[in-house]
Computed example of a mutant assay.
Amino acid sequence: MYVPTPTQRDPHLTAGPPWWLVIGPGFAALIGLFLLTVIYRFDGRSALQIELGMSSQSLLLNAVVAYLVAAAIAVPAGLLLGARFPTSVTVPAICLMLLGVLLVAFVPDSVLLLVGRVLNGLGAGAAIGVTVALIRRLRTGRGVAAGVTAGLGVLALAIAPFLGGLLSDSVGFRVVYLVAALFVFVALVVAGVLGIVALAKKPSASPMPYPPHA
């Protein structure tokens, strides 16, 4: 009689996530990094700061420190849950980002700016955590994925003040955040669609067939 050994395992159970599953949270994480520094500009006070009548210290606390603290709180959740439930974590995270960006786009005062930036930071932090968790579990191309993602993240942080200042001078800071909201919505659609595809491709758990008794 044939008895299966305990070492026999379904190879699908130990396989890492497909590389394309990183696209959704990775795209959202890049937008989150862009939104972190777009609040500033290199050549003076930002249009948002001027329109809301905020001091430099108030802008730092309400728009940057609040964002970073919220992101730091959310990153561990993305790291812990993102590898097992990437779509279930990414989609709510992007929804928080979208709500925060829209709130900043129509913000009337610094109080609501603080709320919007906190929501934005929570979503961005969770997306960054999911991205890191998925990249760590990749079986192949882990170094390339990490390098490309890190490089694009640095680029997003660097160009955001310049691009944000340029657009703010032309059309106003609110349009900048409305455009950002469009990109966040695209990230939400991409993450949702790829999550559905990953779920459809997931093999169903079925018992290993046994050979007939000898």
Rank of each mutant, 00 (worst) to 15 (best):
S46K: 06
G165D: 07
I39A: 13
R84W: 05
V130H: 05
L30C: 07
A205V: 14
P76G: 03
A93C: 05
P92A: 00
L48W: 09
L194H: 04
L96S: 07
A71C: 06
G82N: 04
S170C: 07
P92E: 04
L103Y: 04
T149R: 00
I135A: 10
F183R: 03
L36K: 01
T37V: 07
G32D: 01
M1F: 09
L102S: 09
L96T: 05
F34P: 02
Y177E: 04
Q8G: 00
P4K: 08
P212H: 07
A160N: 04
R137I: 03
G100W: 02
F183T: 03
L194R: 06
Y40L: 14
R137P: 02
V3W: 06
F185S: 14
L79A: 13
A146W: 10
P76M: 01
A71R: 04
G125S: 05
G129P: 08
A160Y: 04
G123M: 02
P209I: 13
P76A: 06
R137H: 13
D169C: 08
V132T: 14
V176H: 02
G26K: 09
L33W: 08
V186Q: 00
R142T: 09
G121N: 07
F106R: 13
L52T: 11
V101Q: 00
V179N: 02
L35I: 11
R117I: 06
R142D: 06
L21S: 10
P212I: 07
G129V: 09
D109K: 02
A74F: 01
V171N: 02
R136D: 10
L199W: 13
P18S: 05
F185Q: 02
V107T: 15
I73P: 01
K201V: 01
A150C: 12
L98C: 03
K202D: 08
L166T: 13
V118I: 15
I39N: 14
L112S: 11
G143W: 07
L59K: 02
A93P: 02
V111E: 13
V176Y: 09
A71K: 01
K201I: 02
D10W: 01
